[in-house]
Amino acid sequence: MTTTPLRMPATDARRTRSRGAERPSPVATAILLLGALYCLLPVLWVVTASTKNGAELFSTFTFSPSTHLWDNFIALTQYRNGLFWRWMLNTAIYAGVGALVSTFVSSLSGYVLAKFQFPGKGVVFTVLLMGVLVPGVILAIPQYFLLAQIGLTNTYWAVLLPQLISPYGIYLARIYAAAAVPTDVVEAGRTEGAGEFRIFLRLALPMMAPGLVTIFLFQFVAIWNNFMLPYIMLGDDHLFPITVGLSGLLNQGATVPALYTLVITGALLSIIPLIILFLVLQRFWKVDLAAGAVKA
């Protein structure tokens, strides 16, 4: 008897509250916009700074633009016969080819670990997963000495090969294969008499595709970001990726300040393709580390 009259105000209260909850909160929005401003500020700076010449860099206000963008661009392009563009190309090769091959290896391994039962599976997975925990940078030095013994240091291979194995990629691929590839489909493929590798290529791989984009992006960013490995492996600056190249240029800038404008213009040009790639593929960045799930 008491419940009936009490229900009405409760429903009313909910209605007003839920309306209240949807009322915009200026504080919440302001905090988010401040965060966005903090994250965009250095990008905004590099855009304006690359329009300044060497003198203006230190004399005019930080964010006031100038008119020398084209001059800086030409100077950078002409620097040692286009070395900068060579670095860009190298980066594309290291990160692009490396991430592509790595994603394929990861997806194949993840698929096998998710869909096959075989002796030693637990051990193989645990050992591979332990690789997630081994800091890549700690491996770089022994990798250098091992590759030096077969004469592969200071080549493209020295930077490409060690980054083809991605324990984290295998881990993600296993989760993705388990969730996205129904065992029935694999069984049906076998019934039709298809080979296991063919089943993987034709049936499993397309089903895993959205997750594979995420794995690709992860590895791409990881290789692009990896500074220590190429820094150690490469001596010839024609093989440098952009990160090592610009870092070296900054180092020389300590004695030749004219190089600073080149470094800044180079930094701007190098992040443009990444930011574009990033915005285009934004929806694939949905990562739940705890559940290990990639939700695409």
Partner: peptide
């Protein structure tokens, strides 16, 4: 209750696309 969430999400996530060397370089100058 928040607004401008899509813009903020992309803007705050954007630095992840910038390699540590480049971000160190930008901040180093700043």
């Amino acid at each position: 209750r928040s607004r401008a969430t899509k813009f903020s999400r992309v803007a705050i996530f954007l630095p992840y696309a910038v390699p540590a060397v480049i971000s160190s370089l930008l901040w180093g100058f700043l």
